[in-house]
Design a protein around this nucleic acid. Structure first.
Length: 259
DNA sequence: ATGACGGTGTGGCACCGA
């Protein structure tokens, strides 16, 4: 059983790359963020023809937008954080019935936050608190839960190319990392760090200043698994290859394998 | 200190992302 997450930064632009990637990496479900298109523009048919006949979509024009595309049926689809009013399409959750039982999959495009002290940063903090409160209930109802997405948070200094120079800047603040810690304390584990990983592993690189070539990146796309799933995690990898594509997304996929 | 690149929607650019 393989799951993946990928911020595609416009599905309209990236659809051919998504289809190419799925042909090589036929994961059971792929969670997408930053669709930047409304539901009626979602390429249901192309994904269905690629073997992904089950899609849960929560789109939005221009900004945001998330989806789960799956080979397995999806049920109990939820959009955004219950109990947190939000104009932006940032969360979609669904339950997959796997051979090992029910798996609750939560896919988030976390708020960017711009810079500490701004209104957007305040929104990020409120959003993170809302997510945590809602997730506590989701975890109680669904012990087998996976939280994936573009978190827009580095968890520690290993997740950033410049820990000193970027200290307490956006994606690196104590407040953001405390919110991440609070998510772990709900009973979640960072699947990527369950394994030995290459040093300087990142999931995002700026388009500017040859950041990818210089490996000046951040690890901000994550897969967290609930404690009962921890013994079943077989691998967790970042696939950097799509960043070498023509017209790449600035993010690359993260893949987890569960037995 | 700023902007650098890329996507969108519009409009001759501005806004946003991270």
């Amino acid at each position: 059983m393989k799951l993946a997450t990928w911020n595609v930064n416009s599905l309209a632009v990236r659809l051919p790359q998504v289809l190419d990637w799925l042909a090589v990496n036929p994961v059971d479900a792929l969670c997408l963020q930053e669709l930047k298109l409304p539901d009626d523009k979602f390429p249901l048919q192309a994904l269905q023809e690629a073997g992904y006949g089950h899609c849960a979509v929560f789109g939005q024009k221009t900004y945001n937008g998330v989806a789960i595309v799956s080979r397995l049926p999806l049920r109990d689809v939820a959009k955004n954080i219950q109990g947190f009013a939000d104009e932006q399409s940032r969360v979609i959750a669904a339950t997959l019935d796997t051979p090992r039982g029910a798996l609750r999959l939560v896919n988030g495009y976390f708020v960017n936050g711009q810079a500490p002290g701004t209104d957007k940063f305040a929104y990020k903090m409120q959003w993170l608190a809302g997510l945590r409160h809602w997730l506590a209930g989701e975890l109680a109802a669904s012990p087998g839960l996976v939280l994936v997405g573009d978190f827009n948070i580095t968890f520690d200094d290993r997740d950033t190319y410049d820990p000193e120079g970027l200290r307490e800047t956006i994606h690196h603040t104590s407040e953001e990392r405390a919110q991440f810690q609070a998510l772990l304390e709900l009973g979640l584990v960072d699947a990527f760090r369950l394994f030995e990983q290459p040093e300087k592993s990142y999931s995002w690189w700026d388009y500017r200043e040859f950041a990818f070539r210089r490996n000046r990146g951040l690890r901000i796309d994550h897969i967290l698994v609930s404690q009962p799933l921890k013994p079943h995690v077989k691998s967790c990898l970042i696939d950097k290859l799509p960043r070498k594509n023509e017209r790449p997304s600035d993010h690359v996929p993260v893949v987890v394998e569960l037995d």
